[in-house]
């Protein structure tokens, strides 16, 4: 506990600062918005690059995401969600909307998605993330290959149930119950590992 306290204090201080800046952004404070941008743009650019491997498209998606964040910041409730997971969710959803608008969502099988070449990762952030990464990837690999693929196709490729059912030539209900079972299994695996 004592050994960890310094770094966890730092984390919670950083988180509180970010939450505060996000709330002030919701009040129309542009300097707070810039602080949010400085603290999170590398991470959110990483999210965009996962969804749009093309750098130009990812840059456009990132700009779009921050404009959405500016517009939606007033709906951020600091008691309910951590600022970073809220920001990642807004960015991911906005990028997927763009993907869908271009008719590109859910079209490709994303077996290789996990292996997408890392876009110039920053070394220390990568190290920090690797622990959680390891658990999630281990638990996804423990699923049936097809279920793992469904989950990636949805989260990174924007596939909906309807897309997956059409792609697999299976009834919607079958695909739904497969994925729901896989989600329960995934959660059980991750809870067990932590």
């Amino acid at each position: 506990m004592a050994a960890d306290s310094a770094s966890s204090d730092l984390d919670s201080a950083r988180r509180a600062r970010l939450a505060d800046a996000l709330v002030r952004t919701g009040h129309g404070d542009r300097s707070a918005f810039e602080a949010v941008y400085r603290a999170t743009s590398a991470k959110l650019f990483g999210v965009c690059l996962r969804i749009f491997p093309d750098r130009n498209e990812a840059e456009e998606a990132l700009q779009d995401a921050y404009l959405t964040i500016w517009n939606k910041a007033a709906s951020f409730e600091s008691g309910r969600a951590s600022p970073i997971s809220w920001l990642v969710a807004v960015t991911r959803n906005r990028a997927i909307d763009r993907l869908r608008a271009r008719g590109k969502a859910g079209m490709t099988s994303l077996d290789e998605a996990a292996e997408i070449a890392d876009p110039a990762p920053l070394a220390d952030a990568q190290l920090l993330a690797s622990g959680e990464n390891h658990v999630l990837h281990g638990c996804i690999e423990a699923l049936e290959r097809r279920d793992a693929n469904f989950i990636r196709s949805a989260f990174i490729g924007g596939a909906t149930y309807a897309d997956l059912a059409a792609r697999e030539g299976e009834p919607l209900g079958t695909v739904k119950s497969r994925i729901r079972r896989a989600l329960i299994k995934l959660r059980g695996c991750m809870e067990g590992a932590s």
Partner: peptide
């Protein structure tokens, strides 16, 4: 919902250096 966001977040992780002009574009679009 928050727990799922945290669980799945590593699938989207991997920081990347952002080109400097992006912030200017965002500011101009506000």
């Amino acid at each position: 919902v928050e727990a799922w966001r945290v669980r799945l977040a590593p699938m989207l992780s991997g920081d990347a250096n952002v080109p400097a002009h992006i912030w200017g574009n965002i500011q101009n679009a506000l």
